[in-house]
Design a protein around this nucleic acid. Structure first.
Lengths: 183, 183
DNA sequence: GTCTATACGTAGATAGAC
DNA sequence: GTCTATCTACGTATAGAC
């Protein structure tokens, strides 16, 4: 059942968004699907394998997005909006960006996952940098720092928003487009 | 030994910065100080009590900083620099902001810790908002969103920096001061 | 593919001696 | 304050039947 395997990846990603990599368990997953932990191990022998499957999916979506950006003539707002929904179409109130959650758990990830996380984090930065320099008519010297600011703003909105129970993303998004990019 | 108790709080904070709340253990702490887990339980009966002690210290430092800002005539750069070092004088290469780490683990924190986290997160936002509006001569309509952007940029620099193994904070800091505040 | 059964480690926590 | 000893719960993981 290739579908079951894919469903497990999706659910694991969602669990990581809620609780992080260390805290989510095969027991969480088995209960959700009504099967035993041993069955999850059939699909993903070790937790590390499941973690890598989640990372590979995140990486794939990011790569696809990167390609779609290169040719597109969308406005920056549209691009940022699509980027925001990239790894999670709709964020539940108790979910943050999966990449952020995995960055926080970086020190306890197995080596293979760390390598992949580094790849994903670097790609996020360059993709965002491309989006910004495409738009900005002016200087691009500090565009790498600016890319991090925009990335961090999006992810930070989710993290602070979950804690203070308030969706700050709309105002942050418009603030970004006005004050940072159109300088 | 009131000093031992305080040392445990410091070390717990550092562990949280490295591994998050869920993953740090009494065993980590006992090994570090060369005493048994039971001894840690003498100082902090439950993990939640130790977690709250860490949060109370973070909150105290933030409150003190908030007061010191109100009267100060420092430049924004100086203020931001002091804010950055507030919760950790010097960040080890494997440490991120403790507040960020605890925000990521928010869903698995006990209720008392969640309440305190909300308080701290709100205070961080208002403190940063004060710093920005003090400086900015212009409009202050979106200063709350701007405060989140600056906060997220600082914390994001630590998170991305740990993963890609590169200190991005200096360029991000100067980028913030130039492009965002002095608009 | 999913099950039962089980092994083994580690976690948080407590009782009671020193 | 710190210890030894112990408990219970839960984690990842495996063997082997269906």
């Amino acid at each position: 059942m290739e579908n079951r395997k894919s469903e497990i990846i999706s659910f694991a990603k969602s669990l990581i968004q809620q609780k992080g990599y260390a805290a989510f368990s095969y027991d969480d997953i088995s209960k959700h699907f009504g099967i035993t932990k041993a069955s999850i191990h059939y699909h993903f022998e070790k937790k590390e394998d499941l973690g890598l499957a989640v990372l590979n999916r995140l990486h794939l979506r990011l790569t696809e997005f990167s390609a779609s950006i290169a040719t597109s003539r969308e406005s920056l707002e549209k691009k940022l909006d699509r980027f925001y929904r990239l790894q999670s179409e709709k964020f539940a109130a108790n979910e943050i960006c999966p990449v952020s959650a995995l960055q926080t758990d970086f020190e306890l990830l197995p080596e293979r996952m760390r390598v992949k996380m580094q790849e994903i984090s670097r790609l996020e930065l360059t993709v965002m940098q491309d989006m910004i320099t495409d738009e900005a008519s002016g200087r691009e010297a500090d565009s790498r720092a600016m890319a991090l600011v925009v990335l961090a703003a999006i992810k930070g909105s989710l993290q602070y928003g979950r804690v203070i129970n308030e969706d700050m993303l709309p105002e942050v998004m418009s603030g970004i487009c006005q004050s940072i990019i159109r300088r």
